[in-house]
Computed example of a mutant assay.
Amino acid sequence: MKRNLYPPIEPFAASHLSVGAGHEIYLEQSGNRYGIPVVFVHGGPGGGTSPLQRRFFDPSKYHIILFDQRGCGKSRPHASLENNTSWDLVADMEAIRLHLNIDQWIVFGGSWGSTLALLYAEKYPEKILNLVLRGIFLLRQKELDWFYGPGSGSIFPEAWDEFLAPLSEEERKMPIQSYYDILTGDDLERQLEAAQAWSVWESSTVTLVQDRFQIEQARDPYFALPFARIEAHYFVHKGWLEEDNQILRDTYKLKNIPTTIVQGRYDAICPPVSAYELKKAMPWAKLKIVDVAGHSAFEPDILHELIKSMDQIAQETDCS
């Protein structure tokens, strides 16, 4: 039987955690406070969390931890790029673990969430019970070139034209840099136009069959501004990695960590080659390529695989 989301639940605790440099991270806990700790690492960067994301996990078995990364969702200050790097977010995750007095936890992340999950795990491998990753993004230049270039643009040509529309012919030669310049500039009207175009582009490509409602939601300025600003900020700076292949280079640190990778075959944002290369670098990992699916965690067959994996981990984990 195909698995689906668990019923809606409310947090038993929600607060803001000060992590320094003026940032306060929104943090919530739901499910079983004495259960298996699992932290949900959202995408983007800049995407924020939603109540739906609590529902990947059996609330009777899991202590479910969601947080909004710096600058997005309910975290403060909104849309801030100051002191907002990959390594700040890695430090924030560790601060959350310490704050909640958790010894080890499962790290569950997709898309940019898989990037951040891997960076965190490579820095703190001893704190990881399991890694569950979806829609693998390794923050390499070739992946950025694919999505902000002729790769995804050749699959969604009409959406690609809309993405390029706010840019001049000269600006289109380096779209990520050009968008970053606009999104951090002083022209607030053009900034909003760019943020909406950037966010709509991603929403137009995230599912196997385009979801018009999701595309329209992406125009909401409260979502679009932090999402576009933070993504462009991270991608212009290549995530502040030491080298393009850093994540694959350091997978040897994860050798004793059980890892599950779920990947859509027709993922136009994060093509399956990255998941395949990650599996080759981590031969102990389980890779499931879902044949009829795009990028979204809510594609029916991807959802099934993720929830099935979490249920199996719960059965195998001694949380006494």
Rank of each mutant, 00 (worst) to 15 (best):
Q177P: 03
E216G: 05
D161S: 12
K142I: 12
E189L: 10
F137K: 01
E171I: 07
T205N: 04
I182Y: 08
A165V: 10
Q177H: 08
I176N: 00
R172W: 04
E143H: 08
A197P: 07
D161W: 02
Y148E: 01
F213C: 07
G153T: 01
F137C: 02
E189D: 12
D186N: 14
E170M: 11
K173W: 08
T207H: 10
L183M: 06
A195M: 10
L164F: 10
L208Y: 11
E158W: 04
T205L: 09
S168P: 07
R190K: 15
G153W: 11
E158T: 15
L192P: 02
Q210A: 13
A165P: 04
I155K: 10
D187C: 11
W160T: 01
A197T: 02
S178K: 08
Q177A: 13
D187Q: 10
R190D: 07
L144A: 04
L144M: 14
G185T: 12
L192S: 03
V206T: 11
G149A: 11
S203R: 12
W160C: 07
L188N: 04
I176S: 00
W146E: 00
L188Q: 13
D187V: 15
W201C: 00
S199P: 02
S152R: 08
T207F: 06
Q191L: 15
Y179I: 05
Q196R: 13
T205E: 01
D181Y: 13
S199G: 00
P166A: 02
G149I: 12
W160S: 00
P175N: 00
L139Q: 02
E193W: 02
W146Y: 15
E216Y: 09
D211Q: 08
D211H: 10
E162D: 11
W160N: 01
Q210F: 06
E169P: 05
A159I: 02
E216V: 13
Q217W: 05
Q177Y: 09
F156A: 14
D181T: 15
V206P: 01
V206R: 09
I215A: 05
Q214A: 15
S178L: 07
E171Q: 15
F147N: 01
Q210L: 10
P157W: 06
D145S: 13
P166E: 02
E216I: 14
G149S: 11
F156E: 04
P166V: 03
Q191A: 10
E216S: 13
F213V: 15
P150C: 04
I182F: 12
E158L: 13
T205P: 03
S168R: 09
L192D: 01
Q141T: 14
R212G: 02
D187M: 09
P175Q: 01
D161C: 09
R212D: 14
G151L: 04
F137H: 02
T207M: 12
